[in-house]
Write a protein that binds this DNA or RNA. Structure first.
Lengths: 163, 163
DNA sequence: AGCCGTTCGTTGAAAGTTCAATAAGCCGGT
DNA sequence: ACCGGCTTATTGAACTTTCAACGAACGGCT
């Protein structure tokens, strides 16, 4: 480790402003969506997201690793979250036939019901506090940006190393 | 509460894609920036953000409530974070002269040093995984979007109620 | 001066997330 | 068949954030 030879390329005023707006805005947005889900439907955002992924899957079932990857959550985190959902009766676990190590999470009737109840609240929030607020083109830009971010950071990326 | 009379306005395919890209991308981005800060400088993102706000403030000091507001973190959260930073010697607390209830957090020499060490790493990451990845115009759009989101959600907003 | 409603910051416990360690099963080479 | 390395999922502890309750101080009012 030598002393930094290259002066850091700081963000300019506009970039810094945008970056901070994103940080703060994301904090507020996630807080709000999470709070709404909790208060009205007793679900956290991560729990809700899991229910969504399951509901879209073949047979309403998905392996733990698949869930983890599709949410970019750690496996441990998914294990804990599924445990809570299971305790709440929204999901059951079943071990995987084709792979003895595997475990599948499966949406229950109750889970389907909970999701159907919660979904309108959630999308209404996503619209009210993000989608409908942004110019269509700006929102599309946001999608492009984070597609790129995801590509860059997604697992399997061997040593993306800064500086 | 009557049964939902209005069918929910779901997101269309592109909107849904953009929304999920944002969710996943943000997860990955924050994880990565946080990890980099921790591994190289023993700081979390929230800790780093606090140091930044303090360093920019008059006299490198800021009241707890000011910190909380500028980060959109809860006061409790700021109390805990500052406690950790204080334990690490990067910050000290001092009670406010003009307001007996108030407490100011003040950057120490060590805090300044830690920030100066960590900053280049952090901006390099923000650039490598976000800013330099996005078309300039797209990144600007992101700024606009989250300015609006923040305006809509910022405290003082009396009962922004969905549906 | 004394009260009352409010704001400020803290506290400790509960909830959620990360981290390192672990057990179990898969697979390829021998 | 078995070994060794890999992947899968879980576990429990450490850490961070949220939540509700609290004491202290402010400020307007009488």
């Amino acid at each position: 480790m030598t002393a930094d030879p290259v002066p850091a390329r700081w963000l300019d005023r506009d970039q810094q402003h945008a970056w901070r707006a994103y940080l703060v805005g994301t904090t507020l947005l996630m807080d709000r969506l999470d709070r709404d889900l909790r208060e009205r439907h007793n679900l956290s955002m991560p729990e809700y997201e899991i229910l969504v992924r399951l509901s879209e899957a073949e047979g309403q079932r998905l392996r733990m690793a698949m869930l983890a990857d599709s949410l970019s959550h750690s496996r441990s985190r998914v294990t804990h979250t599924i445990s809570r959902l299971e305790k709440a009766g929204l999901v059951v676990r079943e071990s995987c036939l084709s792979d003895g190590r595997g475990v599948e999470a499966i949406l229950t009737e109750q889970g389907v019901a909970a999701l159907h109840e919660a979904a309108p609240t959630h999308v209404a929030g996503v619209r009210a506090f993000l989608v409908d607020l942004a110019a269509e083109e700006d929102f599309a830009a946001l999608g492009r940006v984070f597609d790129t971010v995801t590509d860059k950071l997604i697992e399997g990326n061997p040593a993306v190393d800064i500086r």
